[in-house]
Amino acid sequence: MSAQELKIQDKKPVQPNQESTKTETCFAPHVDIFETDAEVVVLADVPGVTPEDIELSLEENILTIAAQRQPPKHMGRLILEEYETGHYLRRFTVAETIDQDQIAARLVDGVLRVSLPKVAPTQPKKIEIKIG
């Protein structure tokens, strides 16, 4: 058992770029981003969505994680509500040069893991100067 107790983290609502006609709540998922020598990894908490509902894109160095959460099935009368559900949306600017064709994503237990492999740095070209 880990020594630390898990605490409730507030869900941060976000506004999509355009206002939608339906009033839908959108939350920014909590993320971990780390870097190894070979790749940049983004972990995002997106409970309640299926792989088909997730849209990932990397355009002009902007990584977008968007997930549509299906509204819950009618489950009777709500008698206790301690959390809200909604779609997920978060964008990041990726500073490193990423090999776009090698991006991979997995969804395990409601956590999305996106690996962004870095492009191998090109060898700096040495220019020899001749004494003429």
């Binding site: 409730i8 489950m75 206790l80 509500e81 301690e82 959390y83 409601g110």
Partner: peptide, 30 residues
């Protein structure tokens, strides 16, 4: 009591149907 933030992890939602109770919780990564 509805829509009151919980103070213990995990937050729960509870639904009542005539014959059953449903409790849901978001537990990503567990």
């Amino acid at each position: 009591g509805k829509n009151q933030p919980a103070n213990v992890y995990p937050p729960l939602n509870m639904y009542e149907e005539p014959d059953r109770l449903l409790i849901t919780a978001e537990l990503p990564g567990v």
